[in-house]
Nucleic acid binder design. Structure first.
Length: 574
RNA sequence: CGGGGAGUAGCGCAGCUUGGUUAGCGCGCCUGCUUUGGGAGCAGGAGGCCGCGGGUUCGAAUCCCGCCUCCCCGACCA
């Protein structure tokens, strides 16, 4: 392509509000423009990278036995009602009405559609297994998009769905997709780590997320460097040491003026946080309950509540902190809250660490007063005792006991074992060898294409601009033309590259050298050729890698070969 | 949804506190000349509903009210 025809200009300064480096560079280099909150246009350069990533995705999906199809972006609400997600998902699911006032949905994912298709297309055990995939637009009305493409509302996703006869078949396809995903990130030059994850709104029996570790990530991961344990903090379990049992002592009121936080309380009483019980007020949306269910979560003072664990425990579709009125309504006093004496006004969820400890200090539901020697069972009855604490740095690994560390990551892909949830809801079944109807067993596998691009940009750049891996670069080689006297030679070289099947970007704008070099660095095409009289008198054409190393002069008739060799040798193959 | 911040030329910003000529600056853009290996120099020029609507005033980018949009933090530890 000729730069003179490119649409979109480079910017010296990034538009305001772009905080992530990847976003700044993608905007400055003319890959991307923002239209609205979490909504982006891809300019030609950006689209080229997207297309290259898509090519990798197609190859790996096809290699895993997948077949591509295309599913609708607008769905009748009916199928979402059938699966239950019309009610369970919440405002993240964009809804609209057609002219006859019928409810429609903007697709945020496609399990319902695939299961609906499977209901008609999958009739016999001979029709299974299958893997279908598409690369398709999604819309999720995220409450807070940020960091450019890392978290957009409208985005392109490669989503794949496996259909199997049984769980064993699912396990096979799941493992195959796990391997394919690893290959995809490797080929795109993105370091990734698979972690165990929450199934979230997808439901099902198991899930992994593929993470790109970066401080700009929004997920917190719990990692053990010793044994390799890696989980999203939402589901991470760490070992806990229950303190030695002691004899229960009598409950005792104690004046604690102003001690409305754990920190102030420990200071006022001169006790460690381990000797306190902390109460967190949550309101849960639970299917079957019209109103939000009040939940009192009780953890030890030195730990934090993991809301995902609480939500999963209760089967809640949404969990939020209570507002002050709700806290008062269940008879509690914020800052001096206690599970004692609630009388069933709220579901009481207690962490085992609290249940296994004796004589803790808790609130008295009275301003400036706490209770000493509170004991679970004697002083209050938990509705549930279950692990609800959030793992933190230094906690002992639940597998090997070594201290874990936490790290931030961006979720660049996920794989879910869905099981039969959607198949049952949509009536997707097949006739087995045994002559019986069986529900199809499904899996679902997603990769955000734009997010992947942004993460690669985040990983591969320097202070002058982007440095694309050759595998997904918008062009293989960037040709700068210095001086009018070499224009014809540059055109000839451009034609030779094209004839050799090499995608070149020819800077035919007639700009000054500095401008051409700066734009070439900014755009991040992996190899650069400079046609100039200087290079010609040195014996050919100047060639260099974007990612580093010195420039060298390549004989004019060897240039195409040099580019081809470099592309083959690149760490990520084209 | 709550809390902050911001909307002025294509991009980045100043001006607003204390209302008052023709609304500025840098970059970019156009024309000409010079220049030509790391975002050139000089000269000339184009480009603004100062986010939108209402109000106050002789007069509003500036003060007041409402709305819209975008960014950041939080969505929790009581």
């Amino acid at each position: 392509m000729r730069m003179s025809r490119l649409f979109g200009t480079t910017l010296r300064e990034a538009p305001g509000g772009a905080d992530a480096v990847s976003q700044q560079l993608l905007l400055r280099a003319g890959y991307l423009r923002q239209l609205g909150q979490g909504i982006f246009s891809y300019l030609p350069l950006g689209l080229r990278v997207i297309r290259r990533i898509e090519a990798v995705l197609r190859e790996e999906m096809d290699g895993a036995g997948g077949v591509e199809l295309s599913l609708p972006v607008v769905h009748p609400a009916e199928i979402w009602r059938q699966s239950g997600r019309w009610d369970s998902v919440g405002p993240e699911l964009a809804r609209l009405k057609d002219r006859r006032d019928r409810d429609l949905v903007l697709a945020m994912t496609h399990e319902e559609v695939v299961a609906t298709l499977a209901a008609t297309e999958t009739r016999s055990w001979r029709d299974l297994p299958r893997l279908v995939y598409q690369i398709q637009l999604k819309f999720r009305d995220d409450p807070r998009p940020r960091a450019g493409l890392v978290r957009a509302r409208e985005f392109t996703m490669k989503d794949a769905y496996s259909l199997d006869r049984d769980g064993a078949g699912l396990d096979v396809q799941y493992a195959r997709m796990h391997a394919a995903y690893t290959a995809i990130y490797d080929r795109c030059g993105l370091p990734s780590l698979a972690v165990g994850a929450d199934v979230g709104m997808m439901g099902g029996s198991g899930a992994h997320e593929f993470m790109y570790l970066t401080p700009i990530g929004e997920d917190t991961l719990v990692l053990c460097d010793h044994c390799g344990y890696a989980q999203n903090r939402q589901v991470a379990v760490v070992a806990t040491e229950t303190p030695p049992p002691e004899a229960m002592m009598d409950v005792e009121r104690v004046e604690t003026p102003g001690a409305s936080t754990i920190e102030l309380l420990t200071r006022a009483l001169g006790i460690p946080a381990e000797r306190t019980a902390k109460v967190v007020f949550l309101a849960a949306t639970v299917p079957g309950h019209r109103d939000a269910v009040p939940v009192v979560a009780v953890v030890r003072g030195d730990t934090d509540v993991n809301e995902t664990k609480v939500a999963n425990l209760l089967g809640a579709t949404d969990l939020r902190p209570m507002v002050d009125e709700e806290i008062t309504a269940i008879g509690c006093v914020a800052g001096y809250a206690s599970p004692v004496g609630l009388d069933g006004a709220a579901r009481v969820v207690v962490d085992p660490l609290v249940a296994g400890s004796q004589n803790l200090v808790a609130g008295a539901n009275e301003v400036d007063v706490h209770l000493r020697n509170v004991n679970v069972g004697r002083d209050f009855a938990p509705d549930v005792v279950a692990d609800i604490v959030a793992a933190k740095d230094g906690d002992p690994c639940s597998v090997c006991g070594s201290p874990v560390r936490t790290a931030r990551g961006v979720e660049v892909g996920n794989i879910f074992k869905l099981g039969t949830k959607y198949a049952v809801a949509m009536g997707a079944s097949y006739l087995g060898e045994d002559g019986q109807e069986h529900p199809v067993v499904m899996g679902s596998y997603g990769i955000g294409v734009g997010r992947l691009m942004a993460c690669v940009a985040e990983e591969h750049h320097d202070d002058r601009g982007l440095c694309w891996p050759a595998s997904i670069a918008p062009f293989a080689v960037h040709v700068c033309v210095i001086g009018d006297d070499v224009r014809d030679d540059a055109e000839a070289l451009y034609a030779e590259l094209a004839a050799a099947g090499i995608d070149a970007l020819l800077d035919d704008r007639g700009e000054r050298p500095g401008v051409q070099f700066a734009d070439a660095d900014l755009s991040g095409v992996p190899f650069r050729l400079v046609v100039s009289s200087r290079a010609r008198s040195a014996g050919g054409v100047e060639a260099r890698r974007r990612s580093g190393g010195d420039a060298l002069v390549v004989a004019r008739d060897a240039v195409v070969g040099w580019v081809r060799d470099e592309l083959v040798a690149a760490p990520t193959r084209r």
